[in-house]
Simulated assay, not measured.
Amino acid sequence: MPSVGSHMQQYGQGPSCWDRIKLGFGIGFAVGISAGALFGTFASLRMGLRGREFVGQVGKTMMQSGGTFGVFMSIGTGIRC
């Protein structure tokens, strides 16, 4: 059974540079979200936050970390294109 995307490989074409940059951003965002959840949780607990403040602070940290990692991974992927 042919793998997904094998129709592109038979013509000698792979994913475009833009597709690779988007994938790099997605992977970096996922790594950043997980790192932000870990560090944000510990930082929020250390500050003594509870309830809505805790969830808001952890969410903010996750989004900031995810965005930062995503941008740097997409830039690195773009350099390699």
Rank of each mutant, 00 (worst) to 15 (best):
V31S: 12
A35Y: 08
G28W: 15
I27L: 15
G76N: 08
F69N: 13
G26L: 11
G24S: 11
M62F: 06
R52Y: 04
G14P: 13
W18K: 14
F39R: 07
M62G: 07
D19Q: 15
G28N: 08
S6D: 15
G14D: 12
V4A: 11
S65I: 02
C17E: 11
Q10F: 11
M47K: 15
H7Y: 10
G32Y: 05
I21C: 01
M73C: 10
G70N: 06
C17S: 13
G24Q: 14
A35F: 12
F42V: 14
M73V: 03
G5A: 08
T61D: 11
F69H: 06
A35L: 15
R50H: 10
T77N: 04
V4M: 10
F42K: 09
D19M: 11
G51P: 02
S74W: 03
V71R: 06
G66V: 01
G48L: 01
F25S: 13
Q13H: 14
R50A: 12
I75C: 06
G67E: 07
M47H: 09
G32A: 09
A37Q: 08
I33M: 15
M63T: 08
G36K: 01
L23W: 13
I79M: 07
M8G: 05
Q13S: 08
V31M: 14
G48I: 06
V58F: 07
R52P: 03
G56Q: 11
F54W: 00
Q57L: 07
G28Q: 12
F42Y: 14
S16W: 08
S74K: 01
C17K: 06
I79A: 08
A35G: 02
F42P: 00
G59S: 15
G51I: 04
G78H: 04
F39S: 10
L49T: 00
Q9T: 05
Q57E: 11
A35R: 07
G59D: 08
F54E: 00
S6M: 07
G67P: 04
T41F: 08
K22A: 15
G59M: 03
G28V: 10
A37K: 03
G76I: 08
S74T: 11
S34Y: 11
F42S: 05
W18H: 12
S44N: 02
I33G: 06
E53D: 15
S44Q: 03
V55N: 13
G48W: 01
F69G: 05
G36I: 00
G24K: 12
G59I: 04
I21Q: 11
M73N: 09
F39W: 08
G36W: 01
H7C: 04
G67R: 05
S65M: 10
V71A: 14
F54I: 00
G67T: 00
I75T: 07
V55D: 14
P15K: 13
T41K: 05
M8A: 13
G36P: 10
R52W: 03
Q64V: 10
V4N: 03
I33L: 15
L45V: 04
G40L: 00
G40M: 01
I33S: 09
I21K: 12
G12F: 07
F29G: 03
S3P: 05
E53P: 01
G70M: 08
M1V: 10
R20F: 09
